[in-house]
Design a protein around this nucleic acid. Sequence first.
DNA 1: GCGAAAGTGTCGCTTAGGCGACGAGAACGG
DNA 2: CCGTTCTCGTCGCCTAAGCGACACTTTCGC
Lengths: 186, 186
Amino acid sequence: MVNTALATEPRLDPRVARTQKLIRDALKTLLAEKNFESISVQDIAERATVNRATFYAHFTDKFALLNAIIREHVATVLADGDPLGQTETRALLRAVGKNVFAFVGMHRTCRIDRDFEPQLESAIEAELTEFLQPTFEHCTASLVASALVGSAMNWRHQAPKMDFAPAIAKIVDVLVDGVARGRHPI
Amino acid sequence: MVNTALATEPRLDPRVARTQKLIRDALKTLLAEKNFESISVQDIAERATVNRATFYAHFTDKFALLNAIIREHVATVLADGDPLGQTETRALLRAVGKNVFAFVGMHRTCRIDRDFEPQLESAIEAELTEFLQPTFEHCTASLVASALVGSAMNWRHQAPKMDFAPAIAKIVDVLVDGVARGRHPI
DNA sequence: GCGAAAGTGTCGCTTAGGCGACGAGAACGG
DNA sequence: CCGTTCTCGTCGCCTAAGCGACACTTTCGC
C-alpha cells in the first residue's frame, strides 16, 4: 500500500508548513480587527511571529496571501455535502451552484469587500475550476466555473435578499440543455 | 529612556521563543488527554510540530519541561492580588501563603500526581524563593518558601478538605518574629 | 526466554528562518 | 517645497530547526 500523498507532495518541510499556517492565521485574525488595506506586511509578519523577509519567501505580497486564504476557504465550502457525489449532471450542478452562492452570500459582510471583488471572483473561479476537474474536462470545468461564479456575483449585487434556488435552476438548465432555449425569437 | 528588558534579556531569538512555546503548549494539551508518564518525548515533539532533536536542544527531558511549565504556572498564581504589595509582614505572608495553598490545592485532581510530587514541591519552592527575593534576603526567602510549601503539601495530604486559613495563620505566627529581622526596609 | 517494537539521547549534515541593511517609493507635515 | 517617516521588496551572513542514523535501554507479546 503506497501513500498517495507522498506521490503528489514531494515532501513538505514541517517548518514551511508551520510558517505558512502562522502567516495565514495572522491575517485571519487581523482581518477581524481592521480592514485589509490598512494591514501592512509588517503587521502580518509581527502577528505571525515571523520575520518580514520570511513572509516574502512564501508569498509575493499580501494580496497573494489573501488569495490563498480565500481559496482555502472556498475549497472547504465547495466540498460541503459532497456535490460531486451526484451521478446526475443536473443534480450535480445544482448542488455545486448552491455552495457557490452560499459562499458568495456569506462574504457580503466581510471586511475585505470594496475593490477586492475582482480578486475574490477570480479566486473562486480558479478554485472551482480545479474542484470540477475530476468530473469535467478542463475546458468545460472552466466554463461552468465562470458561469456559476459570475452569476453568483451578479445575484449578490442585484438581489442578494432573494432566494437563489430559482436562479441556480435556470443557470443549470442553460448549461445542460444549451443556450438555444434562452435565445430570443427571431 | 532605556528598555530594562533589553538589559536583563541579552536578546532571545524569536524562533527559540516560538519553539519553546510550542513545546510547552503541546505538553499542556497532552496532559489534558492522558497522564504524564504515558506521554513520550516523541508525542510532545509531534504535537508541537517540532523535531524530537529540537526538543532535546531546549529541555534535557520531559521532566525538565514539566518543571518549567509548573514554575510558569506557579509564578502567575503567586502574583495573584499582588501579595508583595502588603507593607505589614504578617499580612504579606498570609497573602503569599493563601496563594501557595490555593495552587497546591488546585493540583489535587491533576493528572500529574503520584510520584511526581517531589518535583512538584521543589518546583514550587524554587519559584516561590525567587518570588520572595525582592522582599527578603535570599536565605530568608528560601526558608519561608520551604516552610510554606512544605506545610501546604502536608495540609494537602492530611486534611485537604479543611479550610486552610487557620493553618496559614499559625504558620505565619511562627515565622514572623524570626523572619521580620531579615526583611528589607520598607 | 527471546525477538520485535518502541523510546531515549546524541551527532553531523542540510535547509529554513532571523537579522540588519539597502535603495526606492509613498505619505505626511512643517 | 523638502525633510521626516513609513512601507516595500531584496540581499548576504549567521543561527536554529529538520533529518536520518546511531547505539542503547525499556517494554511487550508470544
